[in-house]
Design a protein around this nucleic acid. Sequence first.
DNA 1: ATATTAAATGCAAATCTTTGCAACTAAGAA
DNA 2: TTCTTAGTTGCAAAGATTTGCATTTAATAT
Lengths: 150, 150
Amino acid sequence: MSCGEKLAEELRRKGFRVTPQRGVILETIAHMGDHLSVQEVYSEARERLPGLNIATIYRTLESLHRAGMVDLFYPGSGPTRFTLRDPSAAHGHLVCTECEHVVDIDTDLIGRLVEEVAAETSFFIDPHHLTLLGICDACFQAGRGKRKIS
Amino acid sequence: MSCGEKLAEELRRKGFRVTPQRGVILETIAHMGDHLSVQEVYSEARERLPGLNIATIYRTLESLHRAGMVDLFYPGSGPTRFTLRDPSAAHGHLVCTECEHVVDIDTDLIGRLVEEVAAETSFFIDPHHLTLLGICDACFQAGRGKRKIS
DNA sequence: ATATTAAATGCAAATCTTTGCAACTAAGAA
DNA sequence: TTCTTAGTTGCAAAGATTTGCATTTAATAT
Ligand SMILES: [Zn+2]
Ligand SMILES: [Zn+2]
Ligand SMILES: [Zn+2]
Ligand SMILES: [Zn+2]
């Protein structure tokens, strides 16, 4: 069973219809890598399926996210980005708002943050692709974290 | 010294120019409350200063954010929202992606999360208006957190 | 195989957001 | 006060995203 067929099967199992468009979009993001913009997915997927409309990309990525197969990434500036979810290994990112640098965080740290929040609030933050904004070490050392506070 | 004058003073101290537009926008968000969309700020501020252009709202809110006077809120769906920062009491939110319910979190919990991340990664996440997406207790109890996984 | 139906798609219009540039102006210097 | 200059604004165009609706189609039942 191919990579695309597996994903289609999973989609169907979750109660979504499997269409040629969705198959192409899934294959596209599976092969293009992480943190793709809608426009990037669109130009690649349209080559594989001419006539594919960009509104379908928007709606499909939203559906795939609701299905838990695609993660969202808000990079602090610029458009939302999309990544195929790897259910076996949640990962996340710290994004520096001064220099745009991105630090990866792993399942363990994410797990501890989820627990800390759940213990106090009974709220379960989504461990998949957790993204936090702040100041990286280099920018903090350089005093850029203070942003010209007199 | 009025509320608006105080804010203008702070803006100037941080190296930004004080313009009538910025004064009006600051007053507007100070009086309208939290989590405002650009369009909401625009329609109110334009009443106070006719001719004010919406591109100025976008650029000003971005500047005020860089100045640390305005916090951003990504509600998981819909446009970014803006809130006047209260430097004396950082707050944050947990947003349920199933029911849109928003739970507030306080300075203490935020502080512990900041420490936990900093200890392991040397990255300082921004404590102001920290927002995390996930599943609220009610939705989790109702099984909606699992999203139809068979 | 055929019919049924709700979901998904394409299309175009509406809406929202960003950007380049000329004109304007706040802040500081003279 | 006047001059200078870099930051800011308005405007219009470009670009990105959402939405309504007619048409198509995947999934299920007959
Ligand atoms: Zn990632
Ligand atoms: Zn940095
Ligand atoms: Zn808030
Ligand atoms: Zn909920």
